[in-house]
Design a binder for these strands. Structure first.
Length: 506
RNA sequence: GGCCCCUUCGUCUAUCGGUCAGGACAGCGGCUUUUCAAGCCGUUAAGAGGGGUUCGACUCCCCUAGGGGCUACCA
């Protein structure tokens, strides 16, 4: 009997930040829930007190919110950024369910599906070492497995340190079914009696997640592939209690370029890091959705809504996917060009804050570099020269190819005058400026190269830059003339190939 | 070591027995051009290997190899 309603959960442990792989897991869960009109729950798995990181829950929630992957049930942040829980199946913070978990463990003991184990960490460690040295699988030897129930209970009552282990079958096979991978067979002999309650009284993942999933009526468990080998243990618990297990879908791992599990060592893994660098949330979603799945043969760009309607768990790939930063960059660049200009300004303005008090000038600068960036932060460098007072022309060639300094000087002078006399309206678009300059070239019988090169270098202070027409437009008349005068001045003082005295233009 | 999973261009992927194996990123080349980008056009590049099954396998089965995951009182 299947679960009538689709209810899925993303269940991170708050041991740091939301991992980019976690974002994909959360997304796939959310896509299924939204598509099927079900529930997407956020449950925090914080049963490991030693690894708990302050602020971890907040970071996960905030990252999910930033990316628009919103749970409609479970742990969430309220307007003030405080952690709250909503929904009827709570509590959703696992540590608060400790009593529930120990009650389930007790029931398992009563059913003879679990047992108390008094073995010390030291004994266990030595056991593992010995088995490893003997070339055998490192498993628990079952020392406490057949302790008499009342004897074990007595030792517990006397306060002896203990854990609770699952009493797994020692023979036979178990078949699990996975939406992505179909049937998988496991042999019980190779599966260890898993600890389900630690000596601190807290449950391990295996018991907590399984029982919580049942209590919360989870219909599909969508999680990383690393959980595949422990799924038989989870199924054992479902069977012991007579519960209907959810459907499982184990997602392929995200990989570094050397095909190891995606890790911090080889770049950013936290969603926060990507957001901070200016990757758009919708890009992260679009990109990460396509790591392991693609709904069509020839489309790369999908909105969140597209993904919701097209999502199909059964078509998710089985093999791991390398996280390809270059493609992410391309996608961010692509989106950056499509978003409304206002949003583009919002994204980029902070990076040139304080450079000029002239908002319109700033916006023109940003518009000019828009198709030259992959990330908002890059505008800072690309627009830097617009805000420099003076260029150092000694490092660049103002004349074009074989053009003499004298001729470059004369050419710039000849351009200054018409620009000075031009109507302000001319500066409204770079197209009109282009027409104007080209006409000037035409009328005077000049050539493009020995006019446009010096003009462009004069305006940018560098040999590589956008077109002179765009530069004139960005600067406007006054700033343009200032740049031209600076260049002319520089040419006149550095001229050594010709003794003629030059008169500086007014 | 043991168990499990995986294997199409360098990378992300499409293909669900019959295709010139398609698209995207990156690369390369060209066009454009005052430079650099961008843009446009074109192009290199793949079914790990070996056996089967079949009229026909990238697709189904087996073996081998390679990669990955798990093997904690972490999740």
């Amino acid at each position: 009997m299947d679960h009538p309603r689709v209810r899925v959960r993303f269940a991170p442990s708050p041991t740091g930040f939301l991992h980019i792989g976690g974002l994909r897991t959360a997304l796939y869960n959310e896509l299924l829930a939204k598509q099927q009109g079900g529930d997407f729950i956020l449950r925090v798995e914080d049963t490991d007190r030693e690894r708990f990181v302050e602020g971890g829950i907040e970071n996960v929630c905030q990252s999910l919110r930033d990316c628009g992957v919103e749970p409609n049930e479970g742990v969430w942040l309220d307007g003030n950024g405080a952690i709250v829980e909503r929904g009827d199946a709570g509590p959703y913070i696992q540590s608060k369910r400790k009593k529930l978990h120990s009650a389930y463990a007790q029931r398992l003991i009563k059913m003879n599906k679990a047992y108390y184990c008094f073995c010390t960490t030291e004994r266990l460690q030595k056991l593992r070492q010995d088995m490893h040295a003997a070339g055998k699988p490192t498993m628990y030897d079952g020392k406490c497995r057949d302790l008499l129930a009342n004897e074990a209970q007595k030792r517990v009552d006397e306060g002896e340190h203990h854990v609770i282990r699952l009493k797994l079958p020692k023979k036979g096979k178990i078949k699990i079914w996975d939406i992505i991978r179909d049937d998988i067979d496991f042999d019980w002999v190779f599966i260890d009696d898993q600890i389900i309650i630690k000596s601190d009284g807290y449950p391990t993942y295996h018991l907590a997640a399984t029982c919580d999933d049942h209590d919360m009526k989870i219909s599909h468990v969508i999680r990383g592939e690393e959980w595949l080998p422990s799924t038989p243990k989870h199924l054992f618990i479902y069977e012991a209690f007579g519960w209907t297990p959810p459907k499982f879908a184990h997602l392929p791992l995200l990989l570094n370029s050397d095909h190891s599990k995606l890790s911090k060592r080889q770049g950013d893994v936290a969603v926060t890091d990507y957001l901070a660098k200016g990757y758009l949330p919708e890009v992260l979603i679009n990109f990460v959705a396509l790591l392991g799945w693609n709904p069509t043969a020839d489309q790369e760009i999908y909105t969140h809504d597209d993904l919701i309607s097209l999502f199909d768990l059964a078509k998710v790939n089985k093999s791991g996917a390398v996280f390809n930063l270059e493609k992410l960059n391309w996608m961010n660049e692509h989106y950056l060009r499509k978003i409304p200009e206002e949003r583009y300004f919002e994204l980029t303005l902070p990076f040139i804050e304080g450079k000029t008090g002239d908002r319109e000038f700033a916006e023109r600068c940003l518009r000019l570099v828009r198709d030259r960036i992959q990330k908002p932060s890059e505008v800072e460098k690309l627009t830097a020269y617009f805000f420099e007072d003076q260029f150092d022309f000694s490092k660049v060639r103002l004349p074009w190819k074989t053009q003499t300094q004298k001729k470059a000087y004369a050419r710039l002078q000849s351009i200054c005058e018409p620009i000075k006399n031009a109507d302000d309206a001319l500066f409204r678009t770079s197209v009109s400026l282009e027409t104007f300059i080209k006409k000037l070239i035409d009328q005077n019988g000049w050539s493009n190269g020995d006019t446009l090169w010096p003009l462009r270098v004069a305006l940018s202070g560098r040999e590589k830059s956008p077109t002179p027409f765009e530069l004139l437009w960005v600067y406007g008349k006054k700033r343009s003339l200032k740049r031209l005068h600076d260049a002319i001045m520089s040419l006149s003082t550095s001229m050594t190939d010709d003794g003629n005295p030059f008169i500086l233009p007014s």
